[in-house]
Design a binder for these strands. Sequence first.
DNA 1: GGCGTACATTGCGTCTGGCG
DNA 2: CGCCAGACGCAATGTACGCC
Length: 714
Amino acid sequence: MAAHSHETESKNKSTSNPSVCFFCNENGQEALHESYTFGQDTRVRECAVKLNDTLLLAKLSAGDLIAQEAKYHSKCLVSLYNRASRIEMKNDNVESKKERQIHGIAFSELVSYINETRSCDETISVYKLSDLCKLYTERITCLGADVSSRVNSSRLKDRIVSNFPDLDAYKQGRENILAFKDDIGPALKRVCLEDFDNEFVNISKAATFVRKDIFASNSEFKGTFPKGCQEASVPQSLLSLISMIQFGPNIQDRSYSQSTLTIAQLLMYSCTKKQSNRHMKDHEPPVCAYLGVMIHCKTRKRDLVDTFFKLGLSVSYDRVLEISTSMANDACRRYVQEGIVCPTNLLQNVFTSSAVDNIDHNPSSISSKDSFHGTGISLFQHISEDAQGVVQALDQSETMLKCQSKRVSLLPESYSNLPPAVLRFNEPDIPLVEGELSIDMFSFPAALKGEFKWLKHVAENSSVRATVGTNISWSAYHAAVLPDGNKLPAVSALLPLFHEQAKSVAMIRHSLEHYRSAVRKLNPGQTPVVAFDQPLFTVAKLIQWNWPQIYGEDHFVMMFGGLHIEMAAFKALGSWLEDSGWTSVLVNAQVTSPGTADSFLKASHVTKTRRAHQVTACTLYRLLSNAYCQYKDVLRDDEVTLEFEDWCLERSKESPHFKFWYTTLRFELTVLIFIRSIREANFSLYIEALSKIIPWFFCLGSHQLFTMATNSSA
DNA sequence: GGCGTACATTGCGTCTGGCG
DNA sequence: CGCCAGACGCAATGTACGCC
């Protein structure tokens, strides 16, 4: 292909002394040429490698062509080049179709460029072939084609001239110049008058070119940020230009960095037709909309959004409000259409549970006039590897309806209107539990072993300074042990809040109703599961027993919330440890102050209490294992060594003191397992741990809790 | 007189409809 | 699409009043 161009480069010269051709080893009829240039040598070597011609490679290994004073037939050389290029063609035949397409696009753009600049009076309508060639090559690179083989300029010239019949090619030295016949006169005159800066013309040409692309493309914000929206929102030429400015023209990979995308979008946003600061609504790239909405969402500060807007980084505050209103309207419209209030981030075909709680917002302690006692309903979805869930099918066509008013439309009346309800019986018939409550201890023993492993891990590692990677703390250890598949985060959503206080029959009934319709939509066939705190749980249970046909125990599962069970368990543990000297131990060991230690007994601060019990468990285990080691040391040879657990049981029989603290350790670990079962969303472990804890509620006087917890485990 | 409570005032910022 | 004025909301401060 490019063979002839090289042919002309190397000055051919017939030699006087007849010898043989380097390639065909014959003298032949034709004239022999001598090799003069290093370029030729390298090219021949490349071809030899490509063709895998061992004979030729062996000859070449003796030295370069010039040093060997090699002579050749031009036919032989050309045939070598052609064979090599054929191989090359075969290699990228798949790509060639795409390449040809890209060449076509680039050429058509070149033609339109010539047309445009010709009609424009400001620019000169004389084109250097080399410039056009450069532009063409650049455009091809932009479009992602390979330009390792040079663009053939004379062929390009022929193509251009055939497109423009009145375009003439002139030769001036080595430079080819193209000009329209009619324009020659004015062009020459202008050249004579102006000594313009060539580079600046190039810049302005590039700017005009990219600007045209910017105005041709459309990037209206549609309310969502789909994948790849940043690339899609800006023209390819703009991205290439910025990328070239940032990193130089030779970039290897075709993906753009975020900074390139951002700059391109900002440019796109601030391009205006006239000299004004008015933005166009159909030129609103994702980054600008995102920045504005994000800042407003996180800080709620008008000033910040305004500042960003004035700096040309984000959309205006007005626009942010408009976007948020139309998004809210969009959601409301969908809710009204479906008759179900179900947030769009929830997935379908995933187990969905919910929690109902009261919201107390009491900003001023002086008067509770402005305080807010509302109700919040949250939905939770537990995704795992085998239940990934599907995104809800939404009609994207109608999203972001143009709304004139900035007022948010209303939620469906079925949601916002609270139907009144009162209990029919204050002491309803409580249905008996059918069948017997049997719980197989399926995973609890393994979990207990896991806890002991943690204790052992702590005992082994706590003496040395903790390095990165040794997870001492209870939660970090178990998180590290957990297989990766179980670490997917849950999806959660909050339904619109209610002004009504939660602790009323009407409100609870209403929330049950709406949660149920959401579950029917998201995961049909699933039994609804709702978690409550203590006061609400009572109301929910009463509702369940008053209307067994609608909310009966076979229709709904009411759960006592995990946090409250945990608190109750710690309280039980507190009353178990009361007056045992546990608090004074904590104070003497300078773990806490006396006041805080006392608060652990009542579990008023859950996190602190949990931590205190974790520390206690570690210490107890350490004392235990020390004692066990001593026991093994003094053991006589003829006695049977007891296993750790058996030894513990044996010791418990002998010493009440030992039994007390061993029981404490077991209880603490059980509570920790319970907490872990919630965190790992392990339902069978939850049931088992709860059934282990419930007897404690019974023993330690908290009768109400006993009933509630039993209810929620049944 | 000190303290606690209820209500009014003030300053600042956001929301909203309307205008150019 | 951008800007503006008035409405509205919130929190801090000021003031009046009753009780011990």
